[in-house]
C-alpha cells in the first residue's frame, strides 16, 4: 500500500538519481577491488554493471547493499547514505546476490514468509506475499518442498523472489540470470521490465552482453576496480570509431599469421576469436580498409572465407576496452554470449 503512493509521488517528481556513487574505493589487503568509482543511476531505470571476473562488481554491490563499508567515498541509494543510514536503507532495497542465499531446510514458501517477516510486514501479509512471488516465478508446485530438493534454476528463482518480497524501491541483482535456462532468463527480463515500469530502479551486474543491451538504459564497464566506460550501448559502440573489420580465415592455423598481417590496418590492435575463426580490428567506416586488409592477406597467402566491415557489437567494445575476448566455451553456443577473462 505504501508502494503505490510512493510510486505516484516518484513519477510526479520526475527523473532524479536513485543511486549516486562518488569516489568509492575499497581494497582487500594489496588488492584494489574498487578504485575511485563514480556512477549515477536515474530513478526508474535499469543500470548494467559489466566487467570481467574480479573486476569489482560484487564488491560494489556489497557496498551499495550495506554489506561492506567502503574505505573512502560516498554512496547514496534511495536517498540514504550506505554507511550512515544503513538501517533505513535496508528496508527499501532488495538484493539477490551472486550465489543463491536461501535456506535449504525450509520449504520455498517458508523461505519467502521468513523474509516477509524479517521485513517487518504484518503477519497477515506473509502468506499472500509469498504466494504472489511463488506464482510469479512458477514455483507454486514446488512451494512446499524443502529447497534442498530444488534444481539450481529453481533455487535461483526463489532467491530472486526473496529479493522482491519486500517490494523494494531499489533492486540490486548480482548476475541474476547466471544458471537460468534461456526461457527462464527471458521471463526474468520481462519481469524486470515490468518492475521498472512500476518505478523500481534496478542495478544489475551481468556477463551477458545481450542482457545488458536488452535491459539496461545505461551501463558501466568495470575493469580492475575502475570504471573504464559509461554510457548507453550505442554511445559505447561509437567509441570504436563506428565499425569493425572482421576477417574469417579458411584454416584456423592461419589465425595468428592473419593477425600479424593486419597490424596497422584500422585503428586498434587486431584480435583473434578462435571460436568463430576470425580476426577483427576496430576501423573507420571506409571501404579502403577492406581493400588494404585484403591486399595484405593476399600477399601473405592466407586463404579467406569472408571479409567484411560491420557495426561493432558490445563484445567488440569490451574487447577494445579491456583487451579480453568473450569467453570461449561450449555453453556459449546455446546461451547468450558470455564475456569474461578466462582464469585458466
Amino acid at each position: 500500500m505504501y508502494a503505490k503512493d510512493a510510486i505516484g509521488e516518484r513519477c510526479a517528481i520526475g527523473t532524479t538519481d536513485e543511486i549516486t556513487v562518488e569516489g568509492i574505493g575499497k581494497r582487500f589487503g594489496s588488492t584494489i577491488a574498487l578504485d575511485d568509482v563514480h556512477l549515477t543511476v536515474p530513478r526508474g531505470t535499469v543500470f548494467g554493471l559489466l566487467g570481467p571476473n574480479g573486476a569489482g562488481k560484487t564488491t560494489l554491490v556489497r557496498i551499495l547493499t550495506t554489506l561492506l563499508r567502503p574505505d573512502h567515498g560516498r554512496a547514496v541509494v534511495a536517498g540514504y547514505d550506505v554507511v550512515h543510514d544503513a538501517a533505513q536503507l535496508r528496508s527499501v532495497i532488495g538484493l539477490a546476490g551472486q550465489y543463491a542465499a536461501v535456506d535449504e531446510t525450509l520449504t520455498g514458501r517458508e523461505n519467502l514468509k521468513l523474509v516477509a517477516r524479517l521485513y517487518h510486514l504484518p503477519r497477515r501479509e506473509w502468506g499472500p506475499r509469498a504466494e504472489a512471488v511463488l506464482e510469479r516465478f512458477s514455483l507454486t508446485d514446488a512451494a512446499d518442498r524443502p529447497v534442498r530438493t530444488y534444481s539450481g534454476g529453481m533455487r535461483r528463482r526463489l532467491d530472486l523472489g526473496a529479493s522482491l518480497v519486500g517490494r523494494p524501491r531499489v533492486l540490486i541483482l548480482d548476475e541474476p540470470t547466471t544458471g537460468l535456462d534461456p526461457r527462464t532468463r527471458m521471463e526474468l527480463w520481462v519481469y524486470v521490465e515490468d518492475l521498472v515500469r512500476d518505478g523500481v530502479t534496478v542495478l544489475l551486474t551481468t556477463q551477458y552482453l545481450e542482457e545488458a543491451e536488452r535491459l539496461a538504459a545505461r551501463m558501466a564497464v568495470l575493469d580492475q576496480g575502475k570504471v573504464i566506460a559509461e554510457g548507453t550501448a550505442n554511445e559505447l559502440k561509437d567509441r570504436l570509431g563506428g565499425a569493425v573489420l572482421e576477417v574469417a580465415v579458411a584454416d584456423p592455423k592461419d589465425l595468428e599469421r592473419a593477425r600479424e598481417l593486419l597490424v596497422g590496418v584500422g585503428s586498434g590492435a587486431p584480435s583473434i576469436d578462435p571460436a568463430r575463426n576470425t580476426v577483427s580490428v576496430a576501423a573507420h567506416q571506409d571501404a579502403q580498409v577492406v581493400l588494404d586488409a585484403a591486399a595484405r592477406l593476399l600477399q601473405g597467402e592466407v586463404p579467406l572465407q569472408d571479409i567484411a566491415l560491420r557495426r561493432p557489437s558490445l563484445d567488440d567494445v569490451f574487447l577494445a576496452l579491456t583487451g579480453n575476448r568473450t569467453a570461449v566455451e561450449p555453453a556459449a553456443a546455446q546461451g547468450p554470449k558470455r564475456w569474461g577473462r578466462r582464469s585458466s
Binding site: 550495506t66 542465499a101 535456506d103 517487518h120
Partner: peptide
C-alpha cells in the same frame, strides 16, 4: 558458508 547470512544482513532486521 552458504551465503544466507548476506541475505539476512541486507534485510532491515
Amino acid at each position: 558458508k552458504q551465503g544466507i547470512v548476506d541475505r539476512f544482513r541486507a534485510l532491515p532486521m
